[in-house]
Simulated assay, not measured.
Amino acid sequence: MQANHLHEKTRLGPVHLKVSELDRSVRFYGEVVGLRELHRASGRAVLTVGGDESPLVVLHELPNAIVMPRRTTAGLYHFALLVPNRGALGLSLRHLLTCGIHVGHSDHLVSEALYIQDPDNNGIEIYADRPRETWRRDESGRYVITTDPLDLDGLLEEAGDSPWEGLPAGTSIGHIHFHVSDLLEARRFYIETLGFDLMASRDSAMFVSAGGYHHHVGLNTWAGVGAPAAADDAAGLAYYTLVAPTPEELERTTARLRQAGIALEQDGKAWFARDPFGITVRLTSEEAIPRG
């Protein structure tokens, strides 16, 4: 592994969201998405999946938060919950269709995905990966990621008659996708400084990861080149979490950020940093992740 690259075992940790009404959001994430409330205190609710005590999503109530129209600012496009198999995705599809909400969907070749929005317009993807050995590469060696029609009937058939009991154990934060105002600036921060590898790209988007995954972070200019940063009092992403496998790998990452002149704020065994578009990442290591 090169010194300026993230370690191959780097992964995403909990996603923290600002919401305008905590009770409403907890109900939505429980009844619609299928997450379980782990605990709640001081205007914050920690959510996970059945059979697990590790936080996945943390909701922070911001009373009277501004709910922005989609694709108007830099910031969260969606965060993605990775379910362990296609049957689990079929169960989610069947359940979402009974909820009476709009469900977007796409076949990306590397994965199959469903898309919904929470009450504050935060985008959510629920997806299942195809086996890694089936992921195709183009002539440049980058993954082919498409937006083909999804086989909805096949997914529903995969679910069979199994009851929906929420998202299953083994669900994780698979990736997160952002609107940014400039892809060249995004490349400098996410690849040249933070240390992700470029896995796929097109004119208005690119996808980066650690360890050869199809993407841990998506970056696009679909809100417009030059899109402004989201306001602090807007609902949306508070911050996302990047987890290094060891404290030593965390130190290597923070050293690269310091060398590039990126301001860091310490929080115990973790560090906060902002990208050029006002998007905040919490950098930590496995040993510092809470387990309940």
Rank of each mutant, 00 (worst) to 15 (best):
G141D: 12
E157P: 01
M199N: 11
V208S: 00
R188W: 01
L97M: 14
L97D: 04
R188A: 14
G174M: 06
G212E: 01
D120T: 09
V144M: 12
A205G: 09
E157F: 01
A200K: 00
L184M: 10
R132H: 15
H108L: 10
E192C: 02
D148S: 13
L114Y: 03
N121A: 07
S172H: 00
L93P: 11
P168Y: 05
Y190R: 03
S92Q: 13
I126F: 06
E125M: 08
R137G: 01
I124H: 03
A113L: 11
G195Q: 03
H175W: 07
A128H: 13
S140R: 15
V103F: 12
M199D: 02
T171K: 03
R130F: 02
D118A: 02
I176S: 09
E125S: 09
S106K: 07
N122I: 12
W135R: 04
L152K: 11
R94K: 15
I176E: 08
L198E: 13
G100K: 08
S162L: 14
S140G: 11
L198M: 06
G154N: 12
A88P: 00
G195S: 05
I145C: 02
R137N: 02
R136N: 00
D118H: 01
L93A: 14
G174C: 04
S111T: 12
E139L: 04
T171M: 06
F196W: 08
S201A: 15
V103A: 08
T146S: 14
T98I: 04
L183S: 05
H175K: 02
G100V: 14
L93V: 07
R202I: 12
L152V: 15
G174E: 07
E139S: 13
G211W: 06
P119H: 05
H102Y: 12
H102M: 06
G212I: 11
G87D: 01
W135Q: 09
I176R: 06
L97C: 00
V103I: 13
N122V: 13
P119Q: 05
D129C: 10
F189Y: 14
I176C: 02
E192P: 02
L91P: 05
H175E: 12
E192W: 03
L93T: 10
D118M: 11
G123R: 13
D118W: 10
L156S: 07
T98V: 04
D138K: 03
Q117N: 12
R188F: 13
Y127H: 13
E185I: 12
H105W: 03
S162F: 00
Y115N: 09
G195T: 08
S92A: 15
L183Q: 08
F189L: 06
A128T: 14
I101K: 07
H177M: 13
I191G: 01
L152M: 14
T171G: 11
L89E: 07
V208Y: 08
A128K: 10
G174S: 07
L150S: 10
L114F: 04
L167N: 09
Q117W: 12
F178C: 03
I191L: 07
